[in-house]
Write a protein that binds this DNA or RNA. Sequence first.
DNA 1: ATCGTTGTATTCAACGTTGTAAAGCAGCTA
DNA 2: TAGCTGCTTTACAACGTTGAATACAACGAT
Lengths: 338, 338
Amino acid sequence: MDKPRVGLKDVARLAGVSVKTVSNVVNGYVHVTPATRTRVQAAIQELNYRPNLSARNLRQGRTGIIALAVPELDIPYFAELAHFVVACAEERGLTVLIDQTGASREREQLVAEGFRAHLIDGLIFSPLALTAEDLAARMDDTPMVLLGERVSEGPADHIVVDNVAAAREATLHLASLGRRRIAAIGAQDDVAAETSRLRLAGYHRALEEAGLPADDRLVVYVEAYHRADGARAMATLLDAGQRPDAVFCFNDPLALGALRTLLERGHTVPGDVALAGFDDIEDGRYSTPTLTTVSPDKQAIASQAVDLLVDRMAKGSQAGAREIYVPYKLVIRESTNG
Amino acid sequence: MDKPRVGLKDVARLAGVSVKTVSNVVNGYVHVTPATRTRVQAAIQELNYRPNLSARNLRQGRTGIIALAVPELDIPYFAELAHFVVACAEERGLTVLIDQTGASREREQLVAEGFRAHLIDGLIFSPLALTAEDLAARMDDTPMVLLGERVSEGPADHIVVDNVAAAREATLHLASLGRRRIAAIGAQDDVAAETSRLRLAGYHRALEEAGLPADDRLVVYVEAYHRADGARAMATLLDAGQRPDAVFCFNDPLALGALRTLLERGHTVPGDVALAGFDDIEDGRYSTPTLTTVSPDKQAIASQAVDLLVDRMAKGSQAGAREIYVPYKLVIRESTNG
DNA sequence: ATCGTTGTATTCAACGTTGTAAAGCAGCTA
DNA sequence: TAGCTGCTTTACAACGTTGAATACAACGAT
């Protein structure tokens, strides 16, 4: 009951040809007699031969595997993104291996350092905790595409959503409803929290443009971007007697958490408080009320990322760092339009 | 600007030792002089050497990679499961590669056929569309653990939640609230939809035990298990004038979709209609009302799956097919307990 | 002095694959 | 028949790694 471990060699012996001929058949090389081809294929069938990818990769120096490193798979945004990335990669004959960094700086450094070196041909990386220096100090030369803010001057490509503009647009939308006490949930202390900073900047810019005063008490800091954090943040606001008449949350789970707290305490949405989120995850399309949100084109993010990566894997580090802006749109739903 | 491609050879040359010695250092072999070890490590550092996993794997016949094949990553249940599997696998030094089958029979067959053969050491597979025959006909001998119903007599291990018992318990809970017209959303026509069948069986058993008549008009069939399907199913029920006073949905997204339709049409939950789901995804913990649901121990599912797989990868196909029941509990929240 | 023993380092071959170069073998033309 | 051409097939080496076998000291015990 041991493993036969069939290789080209075995197929070759059975078909009465050389190893290379079998290899040629497997790879669809043109100049093979139909007769030979048939015979070889029969042998392959009979032995249930499968090419050994490790060997092939060793020979070719490529593995056909790319890694996608995200903070957590159970954050819907990343799950949806992963879904698209896996699909895009497959179209291009690539396999995706998923790393969860848990948003820990240590794990992210490991990823950037290339601890998967030689196993992956490229890396799509959505760092959260990594600083610009961390990324700049990267030694590994595996091609990499970064998702999210441009945090480094290194030679890595970036796929970016214009967070400032999007946050501004969402906040202006709230202001356009006549709301004057517009809160923000999702600010972060962390030096590395670039995304948070940009969305906050957009929020502030919008307030200014709308002629509204910026009130620090309406900006709530959070640890993470889960529903629990949003719920807690909203509770903090309310407990402090700072009931806003609108809230811009820096992502959808935060908004859904905030929504929960509001409804739980008897406030109406959007009546008492209008609510907007960011990311357009599926949950927000079926919550009650449905959630107004900034909808980045995730399909575009995924396909651009894969395209850029494939390009860089092919050409080596020829091109300088590219930065690609992916479109987004503000989707207005019930939570601001009851 | 070409790739230096450093290997043991280069490190060896720089350190002035043999290739094998470097290999020994890398692998932490005991009998190496501290002096030599230091020298080699310095060389490794200087050249930024990384072991080539393809080569190592070729040599050892193992890759350290396992695959997790699930229908879709953007179904929260699978995303959460993937999260745990990736984490468990990592603890055991394994890397996870994720395949999305899209619940297509064709893709699932491909996975079962082992199109990743020689790339993965094992497979954790959550099939949806595959029939028992498909699985029985599997040629590939990569160790495999199946998640979900036992659909085959083959030599594969199964991790199972007692769907009948869980569905029965959820339905009985609804009955215990005094509800008499209890609907079910999530039945499926597909021959392969074993899970759906079992949950339906549990539902029927509960009705019987509670002395309630089974009414076919209260059982709604769905295409898939997304929120959209649940919303549509609920609309169908209501449009047919069959307003139930409780609904057991075969998973949480269905329930959340149904909830959306109910609220949209002005029905109260749980006042008019009590609602229970299955899977305990995060969304249900923050919806309004929060969702009563069957909560399978996902952490246990993941760790058991990885354990079983590791075991089988080690021992070859010694043991017969094992079947492991994972605990679940009914979590009662607002949607049945307003 | 000889023999093991132990610790350290090396050589060799092999894992399964494919690129390169070249050989074999037709069917031609001259 | 010799020489050419184009198709088909082959032998060989190499990718980077590690297990097995082995060489070489240095050591204590006989």
